[in-house]
Design a protein around this nucleic acid. Structure first.
Lengths: 209, 209, 209, 209
DNA sequence: ACGACCGGGACTACCCGTTTCT
DNA sequence: AGAAACGGGTAGTCCCGGTCGT
């Protein structure tokens, strides 16, 4: 294999991926046209079909990258030695910020939301989020930061659903521009019901925006 | 104008609308094919394009019907003389039940979620839901059923977003089959944070399913 | 048979025919849409398909009416006791004027020009014109108004072709508005070559416009 | 730009153009079906829509080629050092011969005749013919080959109209097979009226066919 | 006799994901 | 890697019957 060319190949692949992310985010899978991706990435069919065998393949790559980013963020937050609910907060805000700034992530998110009954796909991303959140909720309950009466698993499910709904609303109303404040107030209101009256969650300053 | 044959016409129109609801719900607007609607409704192109000028038109009709149903449900619940939060509960459950059972509603819901920033559209359905819910939240606060510290408008926004997210999750995971219990637990968890500790919301038995 | 309704039926038929003439004149046979005819004639499909079995039928009726008008004009001019070339002149101008004012005639003319290799149609209108003109040319030659060296049949053929071409040009350039002067100068130039130097054709004042 | 494969592409494009010429010539613009062009050119939709964006585009290309051919013929004749009327004769016959033998030209001619008042089109071909002919007529008059009493511009207009009419007649009656003799006699008769008695135009042998 | 409403279905232009050839 | 070609599938148009009322 040629080695000197690899950097250029990687750049090409990346720019295709980014363009695809945008187009998928705006139009969904069926609504997206390969031609549009070509135009935005300033490449040609030859290039695209060299890197990705089909349009489905391209979508899968977008999702994969999005998942990788998600994992990286999750890992980075999980190792922090902070109260679990605070981890949950900064995790949510980091993720929101990523959605705002990274087109590939935005595309992946839309593709996942849209996903038809294609069960042969990668392990459901939502389940992974739910498991991760549930873990934090459990730890929080052990430390007395989650009410005894609140089921940690159901709380996790709700948080994921509410985040998804919030992200959707922000997408529809402002094209994700007001995502951060929406996520912030969502968390505040939710946690008001999760946390015992005697405790209070510390909300750090918003990451950005 | 004319009276002859109208019953048949109405039946045809309705069966097209229902088929369209299904197809839109399953595949979204772009993914839906008119041909599929034809097959499922057991009609022909002539019939379809007699009742609806374009595919867009058909989608608009689906949304319109869905909105009409929503309004009818809202009206029926609002006149009830019950505590506002209980109204909110039965309203949510009625709506969830409608989504489960009525394909046109299901289609409309998906179409609305998908809708890009098409500002020339009917007044955003979400805004209407938010206003309605906010009204009930305000009344609840007056009656002491909503914590003083909870902003009724933000609470309404969250509820709508959480409902949407929950509906989406249920759609993706079970095709709306487990929608009712999901909505129920969502409400329980949310209200735990909204209602003062001294009060308790009465959750009636689930409407059905 | 019902008699009282017949006048109304005739009116309906006529208004359809006129609308059809317009639409055919503007768009040709294939380009014309029955729907457009309906709109302009303010009638409905039921009415149209009662009077005319198919679109072809409608076109045939338009042509038939146009031919009838042509025959009527020809007869009226032919009985006149005037020099043959003068008859030719006023015949041409009457026909031009009819084309300008009568939409059905205009439609018929276009349909005939367009006619595909459909040899099973009514006897070619052009042949009839040529025969008629040839007869007048022959008479003119007998009276010394046509040069001895000019073949009356070829002259007739040319006149018909030139008229058709002129009519077409006028249609393309002005929508038939400048048809009269064009026909007039065409005749003047043509006759300059047909008539012996010693004679001169009397051009009457133009019929109108 | 690109160089690879251009010969093949050019061949494909040309064969599509020729098939399109035929189909347009036979059925006009609306009557022509892209599918028929595909069949006759032995190509596929993909190929056609790679070379031409729409059916209109295809028609425009046919017209453009026809105009190019016309220009080439005109240029070649105009540089000849011959009496203007003789140039006119051989020009007409060359053009007639081209119509007979070149399907693209035939298509273009029909498309132009059909063209409705679409003012956004290329400069009206008829005007260009008229100007060209008028120029020759003027020169002929200077040299005493055109009668003093004949207006060169009107004569040009008539010639173009008569040619168009003749071509149409030949199309309708014989599918252009008898075009050459028709044009020849048309010119003879016309010129009999244009040229002074003392002079005589030399009619060369027909170009071919 | 006349006309209205409703529906049938063949057909059209065109888009678009993909492959082939160089 | 890019130009060219492939071909299935799309929404939509349009001519035309049926089937009623008046």
């Amino acid at each position: 294999v040629n080695v000197t060319q690899q950097p250029r190949a990687q750049r090409t692949r990346q720019s295709i991926l980014e363009a695809a992310g945008q187009v998928f985010a705006e139009n969904g899978f069926v609504g997206a046209s390969v031609e549009e991706v070509l135009t935005r990435s300033n490449t040609t069919k030859g290039a695209l079909y060299f890197h990705f065998r089909t349009k489905e393949d391209l979508a899968a790559a977008v999702i994969e990258e999005e998942e990788t980013v998600a994992d990286r963020i999750a890992e980075r937050e999980l190792v922090r030695d902070a109260p679990p609910l605070e981890v949950l907060i900064s995790l949510s805000e980091r993720w929101a910020s990523e959605i705002q700034s990274n087109p590939v992530v935005r595309g992946g998110v839309r593709l996942i939301v849209e996903r038809r009954a294609d069960p042969s796909r990668l392990t459901e991303p939502y389940e992974r989020w739910e498991k991760l959140v549930a873990g934090l909720m459990l730890k929080a309950q052990e430390q007395g930061d989650l009410r005894e009466t609140t089921d940690p698993f159901l709380a996790a499910e709700l948080l994921v659903a509410a985040f998804t709904g919030t992200q959707l609303m922000s997408h529809l109303r402002s094209g994700h521009r007001d995502l951060m404040p929406r996520v912030r107030t969502m968390l505040e209101l939710l946690f008001a019901g999760f946390v015992p009256e005697t405790r209070a969650v510390r909300f750090p300053g918003a990451v950005e925006r």
